[in-house]
Computed example of a mutant assay.
Amino acid sequence: MTKQEFLRRYKDENLTIGAEYMMILDKISDAPLVLGCAYDQGVWKIYKTGERDGHYIIKEYASENEAFDFFYELVLSKHNRRNN
């Protein structure tokens, strides 16, 4: 799915990743407690940050659709863990 499709699904399904985390989709950030997906240096990067240690890349994809399909599953998993 595309970034726009992901955002629509995220809103329509009322998904949450937790109050402590924020989601950033336009750049890679080293801010604490971020779950993100951003286009950087020619690839889509799914990343996460901790409280103090900067970001680390979870996966990289050449395709926006593949990246947001994976990111959706990651967000859905986090949502399900918090709500079950």
Rank of each mutant, 00 (worst) to 15 (best):
Y10L: 05
K78F: 03
L35G: 10
H79K: 10
T16E: 04
A31H: 06
R9Q: 05
F68H: 03
E60I: 14
I46N: 05
F6G: 00
R82P: 00
M22W: 15
A62I: 06
Q41W: 09
V75D: 00
Q4F: 02
F6W: 01
A31Y: 02
E13N: 04
K3Q: 14
Y72F: 08
H79G: 07
C37P: 09
S29K: 11
Y47L: 13
G36H: 06
C37E: 12
E66I: 06
R9W: 00
E66L: 11
G42P: 11
M1R: 02
S77D: 04
N65M: 03
G50Y: 03
K3F: 14
Q4N: 04
A62L: 15
H55T: 03
A19S: 07
G18F: 15
N83P: 00
R8P: 01
D12V: 00
K11T: 05
T49L: 06
Y47Q: 10
L15N: 13
L33E: 01
R8Q: 13
V75C: 09
H79D: 03
D69L: 09
M22T: 14
L33S: 04
C37I: 14
L33D: 05
Y61T: 09
M1T: 13
K11H: 07
E73W: 04
A38F: 14
E66S: 10
M22N: 09
N80K: 11
L7W: 01
G36Y: 01
I17T: 06
T49R: 03
D12E: 04
D30L: 11
I46F: 15
A62D: 09
L33C: 04
A31R: 10
Y56Q: 08
L15R: 13
G50I: 05
E64P: 07
L25F: 02
Y72A: 14
N80R: 15
D12L: 00
A38C: 08
H55C: 04
P32Q: 07
T16M: 13
M1V: 06
A19H: 12
A38W: 11
V75L: 03
Y56E: 12
W44H: 08
L15A: 13
Y72I: 12
R81Y: 04
R8Y: 03
Y61I: 07
E5H: 02
M1P: 00
A31W: 01
E5Q: 09
N14M: 03
Y72T: 04
I58C: 05
F68W: 09
Q41L: 13
P32C: 14
I24M: 06
H55G: 13
W44I: 12
D30S: 11
D40N: 15
G36P: 01
K11R: 15
